[in-house]
């Protein structure tokens, strides 16, 4: 776990007078699960957006596997092995869950085959296998616009995993998931990612989830990293407890 997979250095980005990133320096180690916590508006999603090419930083640099990716398009970045899931699931609403995942599987080949079906054996089998691992087999034929929020969230992550990334960034993967199912969902997710040897960065508000699944925690505050380290150490820090966890618990 000592090899740096993603390195952000001196990232700065402001929206008007609001500093969403104010000198972010962060190295993500290969194979780790890194949780990002912090109050709303601290710049957590902005970091994911910058890393995946949706936003371009005003200053600073992001490198992945030793190569600079700052300012690249989302398409170019995903082709290098970085995928993301979204806080608000981004599913193709008029497609079934199976079609959604199969389309993500097919996109690895560039989707430029106009005459062979999407649900041909290769793509369909891989999609079904993935749906089974995520426990979504029962809703494979359900249209995405008919799903509950928790299922949408999982399907959204399954689509990102279908891209076979080496680094997966997840924006609040458990929000919208019923409290009673949350640990099972994260357990499933963690197992799938470990099996696939995917490094994961996830924004999370549930400290129990963070404590149980994160190898390290980065605490975001006003566009800066206020603390970084193992969950046991960071979450027991009185300043973090007062300024972040207190807010989270009351949020």
């Amino acid at each position: 776990m000592s090899e740096v997979l993603l390195q952000a250095s001196g990232l700065r980005l402001a929206f008007g007078g609001v500093k969403a990133a104010d000198g972010i320096d962060l190295g993500v180690m290969k194979g780790e699960f890194l949780a990002i916590i912090g109050p709303n508006g601290a710049g957590k999603t902005t970091f994911i957006n910058m890393t995946t090419g949706y936003l371009r930083p005003n200053a600073g640099e992001i490198s992945y596997e030793g190569q600079r990716i700052t300012g690249m398009s989302p398409r170019a970045i995903v082709k290098r092995g970085i995928a993301r899931s979204f806080q608000l699931p981004q599913l193709f609403l008029e497609h079934t869950v199976e079609q959604n995942v199969a389309l993500a599987v097919a996109s690895r080949d560039g989707i430029w085959s106009p005459l062979t079906p999407l649900l041909r054996p290769g793509y369909r089998d891989e999609a079904r296998d993935l749906l089974e691992r995520f426990g979504l087999t029962g809703i494979a034929d359900t249209r995405a616009d008919a799903l509950n929020e928790g299922a949408r969230k999982l399907a959204d992550i399954a689509m990102a995993v279908a891209l076979k990334p080496r680094l997966l960034l997840m924006d609040e993967p458990t929000s919208g998931v019923a409290a009673s199912e949350k640990m099972d969902v994260v357990e499933t997710l963690a197992r799938v990612l470990r099996e696939a040897k995917v490094t994961a960065v996830f924004v999370e508000h549930d400290m129990d989830v963070v404590e149980r699944f994160a190898d390290r925690v980065a605490v975001w505050s006003q566009g800066r990293i206020a603390a970084l380290g193992p969950p046991g150490e960071v979450l027991s820090d009185p300043a973090v407890q007062r300024e972040v966890i207190g807010i989270e618990r009351h949020a």
Partner: peptide, 25 residues
């Protein structure tokens, strides 16, 4: 054939989630 292919389904994807297509490469 085209409409049922990955290309045709991606075309239909533009209607509901164009952004997602970009994040799928």
């Amino acid at each position: 054939l085209y409409l049922a292919s990955p290309m045709g389904e991606a075309l239909a994807g533009i209607k509901t989630r164009e952004t997602r297509l970009e994040f799928m490469g």
